[in-house]
Simulated assay, not measured.
Amino acid sequence: MIEQESVPAGPPRPLRPLRGAARCAVAALALAALAWSVRAVWHLRLAAAGEPASGPPDQGDGVHRPLNALEDSYHLVSSAGAGVTAVCAVVFLFWLDRARDNAEALTGSAPRYGYGWLWLGWIVPVANLWIPRGVVADVHRSVFPERPLPAVVNWWWGLWLLGLAGGVGIIYADDTDEVIARAYHEVTPLLAADLVIVAAAAAAALMVHTLTTAQQEHIARKGY
């Protein structure tokens, strides 16, 4: 069973510092947005250059021609972007882990989803369509249980799901050479995917700032 009932969590947990983790998360999300923006620029450069007369990098039947300078630089941009995105995911989850622990300390009840779902909720098929948003929602409800979620949470989650379906899926279903060939002939879907991911990162950064500020102000009012 994925969702668990809210039950007393035992002795109160100490509150964990959150602002530093939030600043790191916002900075990491900004870098991820920059990385995907650079990727979009390279997609445009490839489209403008056009496919060489020698054809796509992947010639089929296991044959790959030598890359030109622009294609080689795209490989570097793509690898750097993947690395930045991975670091961003770790830093974001580090912030969410702290915010979730503080939510448990403030409510005195165990969260709806067990600790493992903080990590597994992003990768388990079907469950990843709602659990991460639920974990974030618990953070908000620890401060304002009677209020609806801030709009930025729904914007972030909608953009994330759109990117998961139409952005990350498009790009990572193919290897880098196949993406280069796609940029030569049908760059618009790639640019749309880039735009969605950049927007999702921006919404996530605003969400981190909004929820952190609300939780910290609540803690200050209560005198914890």
Rank of each mutant, 00 (worst) to 15 (best):
E3Y: 10
Q4C: 05
E5A: 15
R16V: 14
G20T: 11
A35C: 04
V38I: 14
R45M: 11
A49W: 02
A53F: 07
P57Y: 08
D58W: 06
H64E: 12
P66G: 09
P66T: 08
L70C: 01
V77N: 07
V77Y: 07
A80I: 15
A82W: 10
A82N: 09
A86M: 10
V87C: 14
F92S: 13
L93F: 02
F94C: 13
L96C: 00
R98I: 00
L106M: 08
S109F: 15
S109K: 09
P111Y: 11
R112L: 09
Y113H: 11
Y113I: 01
L118E: 03
W122G: 04
I123E: 00
I123D: 00
A127C: 14
A127M: 13
L129W: 09
L129R: 04
V136C: 10
D138T: 04
D138K: 02
R147Q: 14
P148F: 08
P148N: 10
A151Q: 13
V152A: 05
V153E: 14
N154Q: 11
W160T: 15
A165R: 03
G167F: 13
V168G: 12
I171Y: 12
Y172I: 08
A173P: 00
D174W: 13
D175Q: 11
D177E: 14
I180L: 09
R182F: 08
E186W: 00
A193L: 01
A193S: 11
I197Q: 14
A200D: 02
V208L: 13
H209Y: 13
T213F: 09
Q215C: 00
H218M: 03
I219F: 00
A220N: 00
R221E: 14
